[in-house]
Design a protein around this nucleic acid. Structure first.
Lengths: 109, 109
DNA sequence: TAAACTGGTATATATCGCAAACCGATATGC
DNA sequence: GCATATCGGTTTGCGATATATACCAGTTTA
């Protein structure tokens, strides 16, 4: 075993990785929300290729975590759901990226 | 919405990320196995802080995927389980890292 | 002989991701 | 008018997953 290389690894962040964000579908959603001020449900559905039900439940989970804010409004009698990343979400997303990068970088020889 | 920044994102690898590897506990296991020629069960258990049952089931999953090879032997009447990363596992792990890095890099402002 | 430890495996449980069924409202066909 | 289809989602159901606990065979210690 190569102790030297092992000690160079910084794997600790992995133990406390944010699983709400780690899920690929939600990572995708957050990636889109992170570059716009807000997006609606259908836009996200098209971009992510998630089904309606799947997208809806992931958004609920993100809302429960306090990472996205969901605002519903009517546009000519038709309901529209607007999503935006909360400040808490932006911070958590940034932290997640930092942690994962650190782990991945420490693994590269 | 900022189309320019959105188009610069390379999120496609996310859609086909390897979930066997994506799970943090297994990512941790693979990280350790990637720097040693082989390790035994207790060593991994101590390094990862996983419980015996948990570690055992993750190793089985990795074995089923063909990513690790499990060899059992006796050392003075005491059983010992040796784990090593297979070639297939090494390739898949490398590919996972490449994909995740690409995604994370495309998200950095 | 019994109690405690080793090195695991099997089982129970809780959660999760996903798809399909459902739902209220609106537009369309006849 | 009254079905029927469509829109924009939410709720429900199910199989798979992750984790902890119970369990087990064998070994060492008291």
């Amino acid at each position: 075993m190569n102790d030297e290389r092992m000690e160079n690894q910084n794997l600790q962040p992995l133990a406390e990785i944010d699983r709400v964000i780690h899920e690929p579908a939600r990572l995708l959603i957050l990636a889109y929300l992170s570059v716009v001020e807000s997006a609606d449900f259908l836009f996200l559905m098209n971009q992510t290729n998630l089904t309606r039900g799947n997208l809806s439940s992931h958004l609920s989970k993100l809302e429960t975590a306090g990472y996205v804010e969901i605002k519903k409004e009517f546009v000519d009698k038709i309901p529209r759901t607007l999503l935006r990343l909360s400040e808490k979400g932006r911070i958590a997303f940034h932290e997640y990226r930092r942690n994962m990068k650190q782990v991945l970088d420490s693994l590269s020889e």
